[in-house]
Write a protein that binds this DNA or RNA. Sequence first.
RNA 1: GCCGAAAUGGCGGAAUUGGUAGACGCGCACGACUCAAAAUCGUGUGGCAGCAAUGUCAUGGGGGUUCGAUUCCCUCUUUCGGCACCA
Length: 874
Amino acid sequence: MEENKKFRTIEDKWIKWWEEHSDLYKAWNNDEDRPAYANAPDGQVKKYVLVEFPYPSGSGLHVGHAFSFTGGDVYARFKRMQGYNVMFPMGFDEFGLPTENYAIKVKRKPQEVTRENTDIFKQQMKKLAFSFDWSREVHTSDPDYYKWTQWIFVQLFKKGLAYKQEMPINWCPSCKIGLANEEVLNGKCERCGAEVSRRNISQWVVKITDYADRLTDGLKNTDFIEKVKTAQINWIGRKDGINIDFEVVGTNQKLTVFTTTPVNFGATFLVVAPEHLFVQQIVEGKFGVNQEQIDEIKKYISEARKKGDMERTELNKIKTGVFSGLYAKNHVTGKEIPIWVTDFVLATVGTGAVQGCPGHDQRDWDFAKKFGIPIVRVVGSIDGNDKDINEEPFIVHLGDKGKMVNSDFLNEMDFTEAMRKTMDYFEEKGWGKRVVSYHLRDWIFSRQHYWGEPIPMIYCAKCAKDQKFKIQNSKFKNKEELESKLKNMGWIPVPEDQLPVVLPEVEAYEPTDDGLSPLSRIDSFVNCTCPVCGGSAKRETDTMPNWAGSDWYFLRYMDPHSATKLVDFDLLKKWGPVDIYIGGDEHNTLHLLYSRFIYLFLYDLGVFPKELPEPYYKRVSHGVILGPDNQRMSKSKGNVIVPETVADMYGVDVVRMYLMFMGPFEGTMAWNEKTLMGVKRFLDRFEKLFKEYFGGISQDAELFASDRNTLMIIINKKIELITKDLEEFGYNTAIAKLMELLNDLEKRKIELIRDDMEVLVKMLAPFAPYTAEELWYWLHYDVNKKSDIVIESVHQQSWPVADPAYLADEKVTVAVAINGKLRDQLVVDRDRSNDEKEMVEMAKGSEKIKTWLAGKQVVKEIFVPGRMVNIVVA
RNA sequence: GCCGAAAUGGCGGAAUUGGUAGACGCGCACGACUCAAAAUCGUGUGGCAGCAAUGUCAUGGGGGUUCGAUUCCCUCUUUCGGCACCA
């Protein structure tokens, strides 16, 4: 133990001193009080710095947390010193599977392990000197918090954005839980890796698709980096296309297909997903397809159903299918084209049916080849130099260049233009209708698990009957409205004054493989009275997904204790939007999208100020820290670095500073103990300079008045650069410059005066708060007054501002190049370096340059003021 | 396959409205201190040639624009991340 402590000197001493003497320390580490310097006085410009809150796992704070939190902390401290009114809050994302699974593993209640883990996290965070404002702490599993998570759901229901639907869901047989599409990776469960199967369960679904366009357009109001915006846009995946109705020959039936590229002169077949209603009807014998054919279709359907998602995607190159026995009429060619059933068409995309244009789509081409369906070219390349369409398809996407052929009135037309024309034509003829389709699906909001927010809904059978009667006697604008009313029949939201619906504490909460939520076994929870008719009713027993609580936590930080509002309007105006949101790449798509959706929805309700259309202004994604072996850290690989352990060994400041120094904040970097030692050396040298300063090196500024100017230039330039780096999260370069400054000042240590030392400490403070505080104390401690004085913290000081008078050098180096290659350098006064004539002349006069010019013809002279002269010779 | 990011010394990485490539740190070598080691301090450190001055090559490969390209354009290769039979 002692051995491990050998590197710690300053911190132990300082923490001890601080504990004993400083009110500030007590304030900083006491939950009851707001940190003494957490917020600047009102009236200052606000800065809301947010880091993604962790779910409190059993293994404590890991390096990834330490990394992103330090990044946020450095920024928050920097901004505070600059005089901003900074809000830098922290909370815990407690509901969800990881915690539940952990609790099951250790055979204890999730409530208990959550509380314990949270305490550990908090203690570790304090140790690492993260200056969170603990007065704003939130916990998603706290009823006072999830009351509002439930309230949001009730609003969604009231606005018709939540509906109950029986739908096939991804079912993980190992976790015994329904998964959202987003939680399925390559057909496997995101958490446990087991193969996902399908199940039909009645679930709450949230209509996020209604907001698809708003979610896309709203990105304009943000300063997210391109990568994040693109990820969101791709996920939403807006596609403008057309639904075309095909007449099924010999029936009254129409089959509707969706396409973005109606190359209909080349459509030689139609394909339908096996799950399609049309296929169901064929099998039921509606269209008079002969029994033999029906049997084959049945066989195909059952085979397709047996395949897991995994298999269906893995074998994605091999096309399978079965002829339906029916034909459709191609509007433009008049030909009868066969309708096939195949599982490469997804029931959930578009209309679940597609027209096959084998000449210009790889899948259609593969399919046509395999089943001997004709392939027709309708688009050719501009130069007309095309291969046989039976040898390879000519794949085109909207926007591509191409020329229409074999297409009657479209011939010779540009491909993209022709597609637009075709849509017009089809609409005119009444054959189709333009529609928008999205990659984004509605959000399955039900989880059949215990550890989550209960969905605050009640089912009343009696009310359902009444509603049915009403619905049957009402008129609706459209079919959809009627359908959604029917779906939600009998479902009544828990009245707002009865929220929250508290999650009961129980002994047995393990999920079961009957697919029902564990809550359904608790009679006292399930049975209730109907808020409308007062009769006996039953509660919804599903809980919400783990996203639900984390979608809006940043709003609660602004008003964490309000019992009457989710967040106060004025406080929202004061703090919103989040200025900087630091988080992992893995949350750039889903968390950000869901969170923005909830915000936009509440915005539309009028809960939020008009001038705040988006919740997050800027997103910064932090990088990933790999183990020393360059692999992702994992217990099984044994390469896990525990920040707290390293901090015990080398000191908190060393860990913080090393994390920020190891590479760019957004990058992927491997842990390297050697580099960490370099940072430690830096902090030691920093301290040593102060010791020498106090240890009798001359402090008489008058003596060195002549050198003062040079020193000021050195210092002020660094202030300028370091400030700029911090502004842009360029922490690694900011620290590099701090190191440069120290190197420079070490050489000039006899010239240093107290002001210089103060500047130095202030710039160190955001990175190494303990060391900086100690050195600041050295600078201000008055021996005569002993230790009972309370010194203002370095963290309350104002950030140094560069004096422009010192930012420009008196002498500059002008590079001289011949044909762009550096050959000489001239050191001249700054003023003269801008004089083209003089500089060119001086360059030509240089001995070195003369030898390069000898016997050559000067063709051109290029002059960049203050920087370089380039002489072009032939 | 599609979308996105990237490729710079022995290593992590600097530098881009196009203007002295390799900051800072690690490692390494030599030296000082020491009986010795560690720690610390000093000096050097992209490759090649040279005692040196200096020259020359060099930012994944190839091509282009330019007086000048790590930076811009085209193309290829590789790596990482995300999505994927999305019509």
